[in-house]
Measured scan of single mutants.
Amino acid sequence: RKESAFKSMLKQAAPPIELDAVWEDIRERFVKEPAFEDITLESERKRIFKDFMHVLEHEC
């Protein structure tokens, strides 16, 4: 699924995404990734990013 691929892309980011990361600041790192391009709505990208950050916070 496209959403899973997007989350995997975020999870495998190098360097890892920090807990205090803001979408607008890290977005540039992913613009050339196929998983990024597959999610065409920016609002959807932000939503998935927020979900990812929520999970990340609870893993720590």
Rank of each mutant, 00 (worst) to 15 (best):
L56G: 11
A14K: 10
R45Q: 03
I39W: 01
P34L: 07
P16R: 09
K46H: 07
D38W: 07
A21C: 06
A13F: 03
F30C: 02
D38K: 11
L10S: 00
D20L: 06
L41P: 11
H54D: 10
D38F: 14
R29N: 06
F36K: 01
V22E: 09
H54I: 13
L41G: 13
F49I: 00
V55Q: 09
H58K: 11
S4N: 12
M53Y: 03
F49V: 02
L56I: 05
K7L: 10
L56T: 14
D25A: 09
P34G: 08
E18C: 15
D51T: 10
R29I: 04
I26T: 10
V22Y: 05
E33A: 05
D51P: 00
P34W: 03
E33R: 08
A13P: 00
A21R: 04
K46N: 08
L56M: 13
I17A: 00
T40S: 13
F49C: 01
M53R: 07
Q12S: 10
E44Y: 04
L10A: 00
T40Y: 13
K11A: 14
D20G: 15
K32T: 13
E3W: 02
E33L: 11
R1K: 13
L19Y: 11
R27A: 05
V31H: 07
R45A: 00
R29V: 04
F30P: 02
D38M: 13
E28K: 15
Q12V: 07
K32N: 06
D38A: 15
L41S: 13
P16C: 07
K7H: 06
W23K: 01
I48L: 13
E3Q: 05
R29A: 05
K32F: 09
F30Y: 04
E3C: 03
M9S: 00
M9I: 05
E3V: 11
H58Y: 14
D20I: 04
I17S: 00
M53V: 09
L10E: 00
K2A: 04
D51Q: 13
R45P: 02
K50T: 14
V55L: 14
E37M: 13
L56Q: 09
S43N: 14
F49Q: 00
I17D: 00
A5I: 12
E44F: 03
M53I: 06
F52L: 07
A21W: 04
D25K: 04
F49Y: 08
E37L: 14
W23A: 01
I39L: 10
E57Y: 11
R45W: 01
E28T: 10
E28W: 13
A14F: 11
I39N: 00
D20P: 06
F6C: 00
Q12A: 10
F36D: 00
K32L: 08
M53A: 06
E59W: 05
H58P: 15
L10C: 02
K2T: 06
L41T: 12
S43R: 11
V55N: 06
V22H: 13
E33N: 08
L19E: 14
P16N: 07
E24L: 04
A14E: 11
F30R: 02
Q12G: 07
S43M: 15
T40M: 11
I39E: 02
S43G: 10
R27M: 07
F36I: 01
S4E: 15
Q12E: 07
E24R: 04
A35V: 08
C60G: 10
I48R: 00
I48G: 02
V22R: 12
H54P: 06
I48C: 15
V22S: 08
V55F: 06
R47S: 12
F36H: 02
K46V: 12
H54R: 14
F49G: 02
E44I: 03
K32Y: 06
K32W: 08
C60T: 08
W23C: 02
K50W: 11
L56Y: 09
K46C: 08
L10N: 01
A14L: 11
D20Y: 07
I39F: 03
E28M: 14
E44T: 13
L10V: 02
D25I: 05
L19C: 10
P34D: 08
L10D: 02
D51G: 08
E57D: 14
K46Y: 09
F49W: 07
L56H: 15
S4W: 15
P34V: 09
V22T: 13
E18T: 15
A13R: 02
H58L: 11
F49L: 02
L19F: 08
H54G: 14
A35I: 09
R47Y: 04
H54K: 15
S4Q: 15
A35F: 02
E59T: 11
T40L: 11
F6N: 02
A13G: 04
Q12I: 06
V22A: 09
R27H: 02
S43Q: 07
E37I: 15
D20W: 13
L41V: 13
E24T: 07
C60Q: 06
H58T: 14
A5M: 15
I48F: 05
F49S: 01
V31M: 10
R47M: 10
S8K: 13
E44R: 05
I17R: 02
C60P: 15
R1S: 15
K46D: 04
E44A: 06
E37H: 09
P15A: 03
V55M: 10
P34C: 09
K11P: 00
T40F: 05
L56D: 08
K46Q: 08
I17V: 09
E42A: 01
D25N: 11
E44W: 06
I17F: 04
E59D: 12
R1H: 15
E33S: 12
D25S: 08
E3I: 07
F6M: 04
K32G: 14
L56C: 09
M9Q: 02
T40R: 12
E28V: 11
K32H: 07
A14D: 08
E3N: 03
R1W: 14
D20T: 06
L10M: 03
D20N: 07
D20R: 09
R47V: 06
V22P: 05
E24M: 05
E24P: 04
V31P: 00
S4M: 15
V31A: 12
I48Y: 09
F30A: 01
E18F: 08
R45F: 00
E3R: 03
E18W: 07
S4C: 15
D38T: 07
A35W: 02
K2D: 05
V55K: 15
E44H: 04
A35Q: 09
D25Q: 08
S4A: 15
K11C: 11
H54S: 12
D51L: 06
V31G: 10
K50L: 13
F6P: 00
L41F: 14
E33Y: 13
K32S: 11
D51C: 08
A13K: 04
K46E: 12
E44Q: 10
K11Y: 11
F36Y: 08
K50S: 14
R45K: 04
S8L: 15
E59P: 10
R1E: 07
L19S: 13
D25E: 09
I48P: 00
E18Q: 05
P16F: 06
E37R: 13
S8A: 09
I48Q: 05
P34S: 11
S4D: 08
R47P: 00
E28L: 11
A21L: 04
E28A: 13
E3M: 03
D25Y: 04
I48E: 03
R27D: 01
K2R: 13
S8D: 10
S4T: 15
E59N: 14
R1C: 15
E37G: 14
L19W: 10
T40H: 14
L41N: 13
E37V: 13
E18D: 13
F49K: 00
K7S: 09
D20C: 08
A14R: 10
E18V: 12
E57I: 07
V55E: 13
E59F: 03
M9D: 00
H54N: 11
L10P: 01
E33Q: 06
E24A: 07
E33G: 01
A13L: 03
E3D: 04
S8Y: 08
H54F: 12
P15H: 09
H54E: 14
K11F: 05
I39C: 04
H54W: 10
L10Q: 01
F30L: 06
E18K: 12
E3G: 03
H54T: 14
L41I: 13
I48S: 02
D38S: 14
F49P: 01
E37T: 13
E57A: 13
R45L: 00
C60E: 13
